[in-house]
Amino acid sequence: MNLSPAELWIGGILTLMIFSFLYRDNPFYKFAEHLFVGVSAAYWMVQGVWGTLMPNLVAKVAPGMVQSFMPEAAGKNPEWHYLIAALFGVLLLTRLVPSIGWLSRWSLAFVVGYSAGTNFIRYLQSDFIAQIRSTMIPLVVQGQGGLDLGASFSHLVLIVGVFCGLVYFFFSKEHHGALGRVSRIGVWTLMVTFGASFGYTVMARISLLLGRLQALIIWLRLVSGGS
């Protein structure tokens, strides 16, 4: 992405302000931190208004009002039922007025009901049934020259790992004896997963760091008059 000199200058200075925290908390970091809070709150609000509220509420309820700058709304009949969503939205804002703040529970109830209804089905389908189905794989894998030892071992690791991991999460019985040993293997499997996740997290952060350092180098070149 090509950035203008002004974007590079501001971005570079703000980057240095954030990195100054590595020394210790200071006014430059606080300035950048507070700016970040304000700008990001407004950014998501604006995105919500133009990306969701305008096309999904205003254009549906009052298409005539927005057809000058939203051509897709022209000639459409108003769909009044979207006012219910608007009402729920306005009720949510009553949280800012303590005396009638309890009305915001109605909106919250819709959000909770929607999340519960969709999650109930979605998690059952994709995270429960589909995951169990994907774990039901053959333990003995036949290759071109007979038994494929490597693939069979990998399948065994997967099946045993999932089973033992699930046993570890089974808290209705104390983990002693055979159950304890199986649960211990589950812990080891989970530790491999956490280690891998940690490795990936570190790499993602380092990759971001490199990106910022690269941006700083581009900015410093600009400052020094280079290309």
């Binding site: 995270d127 429960f128 995951q131 169990i132 994907s134 774990t135 990998s154 690791v157 997967l158 099946i159 045993v160 790992g161 999932v162 033992c164 991991g165 699930l166 570890y168 999460f169 589950g186 499997t189 989970l190 530790m191 491999v192 997963t193 956490f194 891998a196 996740s197």
Partner: peptide, 12 residues
């Protein structure tokens, strides 16, 4: 493999 097994146990 092992990472998928652990992830799957957590996801289930």
């Amino acid at each position: 493999w092992p990472n998928t097994a652990g992830q799957r146990a957590i996801v289930i």
